[in-house]
Design a protein around this nucleic acid. Sequence first.
DNA 1: GATCAATCTGCAACCGTTGTCAATTGGAAA
DNA 2: TTTCCAATTGACAACGGTTGCAGATTGATC
Lengths: 146, 146
Amino acid sequence: MKSPAELTELFRQQGLKITPQRVAIFQALHGSEVHPSAEAVYESVAVGMPSISLRTVYQTLNDLASMGELVALDLGTGAARFDPNTDPHHHVVCDRCGKVRDIYADFTDVRLPRSTKGELHGFRVSSTEIVFRGLCHSCQHPGPDE
Amino acid sequence: MKSPAELTELFRQQGLKITPQRVAIFQALHGSEVHPSAEAVYESVAVGMPSISLRTVYQTLNDLASMGELVALDLGTGAARFDPNTDPHHHVVCDRCGKVRDIYADFTDVRLPRSTKGELHGFRVSSTEIVFRGLCHSCQHPGPDE
DNA sequence: GATCAATCTGCAACCGTTGTCAATTGGAAA
DNA sequence: TTTCCAATTGACAACGGTTGCAGATTGATC
Ligand SMILES: [Mn+2]
Ligand SMILES: [Mn+2]
Ligand SMILES: [Zn+2]
Ligand SMILES: [Zn+2]
């Protein structure tokens, strides 16, 4: 995802208005590696802008996603996660708390294998997603009361 | 997943009742490779048992899943998909119609890479899922009206 | 067959997300 | 700067998938 300043410029070019809400969302996401849900973005932005609505957060996240500045991920944790990292990469997900970490690895040899008839099951594959699931550090060492 | 007869025996052993609804669901799933949603199982069973409720289908699918006889998959197609194939394998998913096919391939070299500090990002990984996404055969050649 | 806990059905409620629309607002034009 | 209007906002309803609930029904055991 581009910087808040670059996104501002991009939105302006597209004829979209630069609202304080949008700028706050740009800032909340920039450089973030936590893969927040829309709700998490909302809570983070709402600290400094209590009047913002969840609907506006969804709208802006969807706008960014359709511009390709953000990737919406469904990692099976209930809510969609938004990823400002648009480089090709994979993920580790904690089954207990939903924590997500980026995984950079060259899995170029992971390709859809051909059937015995030499074809790809009739599929034309456009992306390959690898998700590692397990427990994160803190969920492996649960405190007595959590 | 075991055969309907074996599942019947298994349920009996667990002290669970053998109801016509459960048997019909066992039969609908046995040998199936379509990865149906709960709704799809419901529609299939309801042909011969119109009075069955969707709630019962969910209940039985969840029971089978918690017994390990079935795997519940979240492949990002909206509804959960239920897989009677409990062997380790991967999937190809059609982005357009949601069709799912099993992929058997040895990706044992696909492992969570270690960080520069030599650790696995603090994670203890218990499973690795590979999902290939793209278009199935029929969705690559859409008819004029679909 | 009688008993009774397990199960079933129908419906309400839940969660994450999107549709709707009146009120508000950013920014181009004058 | 002021005007103007389309874009945006926020509140709330509605949606699809799933689960909670409660009363009616039924399978297993005797
Ligand atoms: Mn990521
Ligand atoms: Mn499968
Ligand atoms: Zn965790
Ligand atoms: Zn298809």
